[in-house]
Structures are given as structure tokens and as C-alpha cells.
Amino acid sequence: MAGRWMDLGALNARGLPGADALGVAIERMVTGIASSVESERGLAARLNYLTKTDAGYEAMDRAGIHVSPRTLMAWLAEERIPNKANRSRLDAAYWDLRRRNVAADLKKRLNNHGRGTRIEINPVDQTRVEGRHQRDLSSRSINVRGVWDRAVDAWMNDDYDELDAVWDDIIEDLGSEYDAYSNVSSIGWAA
């Protein structure tokens, strides 16, 4: 299981578990409305997106938005503005729905017709580690295939253990020094 450096910061190395970096990298691929939910434009766009489909209403329900149809219509008509708590819930519902709507596209893009996606793995930052304790690590670039459906599903379900298992499968391709990449500074790709 990835994360074998149980006390990563003991010698002042900085990084995060590979599973976390993988989740962050997938999350960065999800784009959406740039305007804040606090702005008139951002609020209207979120309400419009959420009220177009049944899935949007389900996302609002999951986020804890339980208002009367009359109140919802007043929000949509911009006659009333949701309170701060409901604006926050609307934003959470919006991003939940965006994640669900883009999951299939993410799998397709990352699988790349079976060719996979080349990722760059940046090792932990050792700039503050005393020289005698530093490891000789460099950025690694590998092509990853066959794990992307599992990775996106684990990310969608907030399943850290599965993301960790996927990360293990990815770093096994690094050979004997795979353990040095159980924690990383970051990972990235152009998918």
C-alpha cells in the first residue's frame, strides 16, 4: 500500500500521499462556472444548471437544499436571494453535479482509446532536508494504462483506499524505486 513513509515530515521533506495527489489532479480537470456563487451571475448560472434536469434536483437534495417550489421559483426569477447557507449549499450541489456529469468524459480522456495518459510524478520536496538524509529522486514520466476507470470512480466516491490502491498500481511501474514515490510533491498530465 502506498504511503510507506509514515513519518514523511520527520526530516523536513514536504509532500503528500500519491493518492491525494491523484485525487487533486483529477479534480483540477473539472471545470465549471468561474463566477462566485456570491455574484448575481454566478448564482443565476448555478440555479439554471441545477434546475435543468432531475439530476440537478437530486444534487440539491443531497446538498441539503429543502425549499418550497415557490421559493425556488423566486430565486430563479431573481425576486429573492438565497441566504448565505443556501448559497453555499447551491455551490456544493453545483460542483457535485459537475463532477458526476464529467466523470464519463474524464475516463474517456484519460484512457485515450486504450493508449492511456502520460503522467509526470514530481518527488517530495527535499530542499529543507539535511544533505546526508536526502534521497536521489527526480521527476518521473510514465504512461499509465488500465487504471483510469477505477481512479475516476474512486475519486467520485471519495474512496481514499481505492485511490491509494490505484496509486500503488501506478508506481509499481517505476521498478525497484517505486516506494520513493509513495509520497510526492505533485503529479500532472495533459489530458
Rank of each mutant, 00 (worst) to 15 (best):
76 L>Y: 04
90 L>H: 00
16 L>I: 14
70 R>Q: 11
153 D>I: 10
57 Y>C: 08
125 D>G: 04
65 I>C: 01
37 V>P: 09
116 G>C: 01
90 L>A: 09
79 E>R: 13
190 A>T: 10
60 M>R: 02
58 E>Q: 13
14 R>D: 06
27 E>N: 15
73 M>E: 13
171 I>M: 10
168 D>N: 10
102 V>K: 10
138 S>T: 15
67 V>T: 08
133 H>D: 13
170 I>T: 04
19 A>L: 04
79 E>Y: 11
89 R>C: 00
33 I>E: 14
132 R>V: 14
120 E>V: 13
117 T>C: 01
13 A>Y: 04
142 I>R: 05
107 K>T: 13
78 E>P: 06
191 A>R: 08
177 E>L: 11
126 Q>Y: 08
166 V>M: 10
45 A>P: 02
187 I>P: 05
131 G>H: 09
12 N>V: 02
68 S>A: 05
81 I>M: 11
34 A>H: 12
147 V>M: 04
94 Y>L: 05
8 L>D: 02
181 Y>D: 03
170 I>C: 07
82 P>M: 01
19 A>W: 11
15 G>N: 06
93 A>S: 08
159 D>Y: 03
141 S>N: 05
112 N>M: 06
168 D>M: 14
151 A>Y: 00
25 A>F: 03
134 Q>N: 03
69 P>F: 03
157 N>T: 09
102 V>M: 11
146 G>P: 06
92 A>W: 00
105 D>I: 10
114 G>D: 05
40 E>C: 08
116 G>D: 02
126 Q>L: 09
115 R>P: 00
25 A>H: 00
22 L>K: 06
13 A>M: 14
92 A>L: 06
5 W>N: 13
58 E>D: 15
108 K>T: 15
182 S>F: 09
129 V>R: 03
4 R>Y: 09
52 K>S: 08
